[in-house]
Nucleic acid binder design. Structure first.
Lengths: 292, 292
DNA sequence: CCGCCTATAAAACAGTAGTTTCAATTATGT
DNA sequence: ACATAATTGAAACTACTGTTTTATAGGCGG
C-alpha cells in the first residue's frame, strides 16, 4: 500500500468517520455494507462478519475486504475498536480513570452525560413486559404497601406519592415511628408489597421480604444490579442502574422507572384513574393551595 | 387476579430474569459469571464467551455450563437474545415524539428518551458558575436547613441525605410533626437555607422565604422554570426542567442537579483540605465497602 | 476486438470459538 | 470416615468464523 502514513492516523478515528472517508470510492457490494453499518450505529460489535454479509446480501469475502479497505487490519480489529469506543463512556471506565479521582470542579456536561448513560443502561436492561406485569398488579391490588429504607426511602416516598394520585390505599412503610408489622400483619394475597431496595441495603430487608412472602403477599422488587438473593423472593423484579463515574450512586434511573410505572398505570386504568387524578387536582384548586 | 395473556416464552425470559431465577442454586464459579453479567455495563452480546471467562476468572467450560444451566441451549442463543433485546430498546428505532395524548402501554424507550431530553434541556440552561457559588455557600455555612414541600419533599430529603454525608449540621424542614419556626427562628447570616420548590408549590413557600430572608439568612433556591417571584428572594437560583411529554412532571433533572451539588461540594472540600476531609475519606470507605 | 484491471462470490483454508470429555478436587450425605 | 455426587479447569475436539485463494464476470481504454 502506498498510504502507510495515513493509516496510523486512522487508528484513533471512529468507525463511521472511516466509512465516510472512503464512501465515494466504495464498490457496490461494499457500499451496501457501508449503508448497513451506518444504519446500525452502536452495536456493530454484537454482530459477526457472517451475519453482516447476510444482512447486506453480499458475500463474506466482501465483508473482509470492506473493513480492510477502510483501514482496519481485520474485521476483528474493527469490532474491538467499536466496542471499546462504546465502553469508554461507561461510568465504570470513568470511575477508574480521570473523573472520579480528579479534584477540581465537576463539568456539568460530563456529569449529565454520566446520568444519561446510566439511564440508557437501565433502559437497555429493562424488561418492558415485566413493567407491564407490574402495572397490572398495581392496578389490581386491594392495598399497596411501599417499603424503602435508607437510600431507597425517598424513592419509596416518591412512588407512594405518584401511586397515591392514581389510586387509593397506597401506604408508605415505615411511616414515622412505625415498627415492622403495623401495616404488614394483615396483608393478604390480594394486596401488593413494593420493595425499593437500592444498593447499600440493610440485611433486614431480606427478612421483611421473607415474612411478607410467607403471608402469601406478592412482592414487586425494585433494585439495582447487585441484588443477589432478593429477586428470588419477589414475583417481579425491575432493575435500575446505580453505578456512576462520580461519587455517590445515582438514583435518576430508578426515579425514571418509578414514574414510568405511574404513567403506564394511569394509562392502563384509563378514565377511572384519570378521574381520580382530576379529583385531586380540583380539590387542591379549591383549597387554593397552589400558587399557579 | 386472573392470569394475563400468555406471552412468547423466549422474549418473556430475558437473560437477567433467568439468572435471578437460578442464582441461589449456582455453584461458585458460575456465580462469579452471574455477578459479572448482572453488573455488566455494556452489551453482553459484544463479548465472546472466552472474554467473559477471562473477565470472570473462570474457565471457558464454566461459561458454557453456566448458560446451559440457566436455560439457554447454548452461549450463542443467549448472545442472540441479549442482542435482540438491546435492539428493541435502541433509541434509533424509537419515535422521538412524545406520546402524551395516546392511550395504550408506554414504550419504555420513548419514555426514557423523554427523560433524557429533560436532562439535556436542564443542562443547557444550567449556570455552571452558579453551581460553583452554591457549593461555596454550602461549604461555608454554619448550619444548613433544607426546605421542601409536596413534590419537593423527597428531593429535599434526598439533598439532606447527600449533604449530611459530607458535612455536619444539615437539617430537613419540616421534619415529621414540625411547625414552621422550629428550626428557622434562630438562623442567622452564617447559616444557609436551601429551598426546593418545584412546580405545584404551596403559596406558603413564598411566605417562608420572605421571613427567612428578613432574618438575613441567605437562600439558595432550586426550582423549575415556572417560578416567578421566588428567585428575587434568593441569593442563588438553580433551575431544573420539569416539563415532560408524559403525565406527571419529571424530577430526574432536579435529582441530577442535587447530586451534582453534592459531588462538586465533596471535591471542593477535598481540594481545600478542610477539616471535613477526614469525613470524606470515611465516606469513600463506606461507599466502597462490600455489602451483602 | 482485445488485453488489463477491478469486483465479486464460491471454495479452500487456517485459526479460533465454544463444546465436550475427563481426571482431579471439593462438597455432601450417610 | 467413607462413599458418592457435584464442581472445576485442562485438554481434546468439532464446528464455524473470518481470511485467502481462485475463477468468473464485467468495465474501460486502447
Amino acid at each position: 500500500m502506498t498510504n502507510e502514513i495515513e493509516m496510523d492516523l486512522d487508528t484513533a478515528s471512529p468507525l463511521e468517520r472511516r466509512i465516510h472517508e472512503f464512501y465515494a470510492a466504495l464498490p457496490p457490494a461494499e457500499r451496501k455494507l457501508a449503508d448497513l453499518v451506518l444504519q446500525f450505529p452502536g452495536d456493530l460489535a454484537a454482530y459477526s462478519a457472517t451475519e453482516l454479509s447476510e444482512l447486506a446480501g453480499v458475500s463474506k469475502a466482501a465483508v473482509t475486504r470492506f473493513f480492510k479497505r477502510i483501514g482496519f487490519a481485520s474485521f476483528d480489529e474493527a469490532r474491538r475498536q467499536s466496542r471499546e469506543a462504546r465502553d469508554r463512556g461507561s461510568p465504570i471506565y470513568l470511575a477508574t480513570s480521570a473523573q472520579s479521582g480528579t479534584v477540581g470542579p465537576v463539568d456539568p456536561g460530563t456529569f449529565f452525560n454520566d446520568e444519561i448513560q446510566a439511564l440508557q443502561r437501565t433502559l437497555h436492561k429493562l424488561d418492558a413486559a415485566a413493567v407491564a406485569r407490574v402495572c397490572t398488579r398495581i392496578a389490581g391490588a386491594r392495598r399497596i404497601v411501599v417499603i424503602g429504607h435508607r437510600n431507597s426511602y425517598h424513592l419509596a416516598g416518591y412512588l407512594r406519592g405518584l401511586l397515591g394520585q392514581i389510586r387509593p390505599n397506597v401506604l408508605l412503610f415505615p411511616g414515622p415511628g412505625e415498627t415492622p408489622g403495623d401495616h404488614l400483619a394483615d396483608l393478604g394475597a390480594e394486596d401488593l408489597v413494593i420493595v425499593v431496595a437500592m444498593r447499600r441495603r440493610r440485611a433486614q430487608i431480606s427478612n421483611i421480604m421473607k415474612s411478607v412472602a410467607d403471608l402469601g403477599v406478592p412482592i414487586v422488587l425494585i433494585t439495582d444490579p447487585t441484588a443477589r438473593g432478593l429477586p428470588a423472593l419477589a414475583k417481579e423484579t425491575l432493575v435500575c442502574e446505580t453505578a456512576s463515574g462520580f461519587l455517590f450512586d445515582t438514583y435518576t434511573p430508578a426515579h425514571a422507572v418509578l414514574r414510568l410505572l405511574a404513567v403506564d398505570l394511569s394509562r392502563q386504568l384509563g378514565q377511572k384513574g384519570r378521574t381520580h387524578l382530576k379529583a385531586i387536582e380540583r380539590l387542591h384548586e379549591q383549597l387554593n393551595e397552589l400558587e399557579q
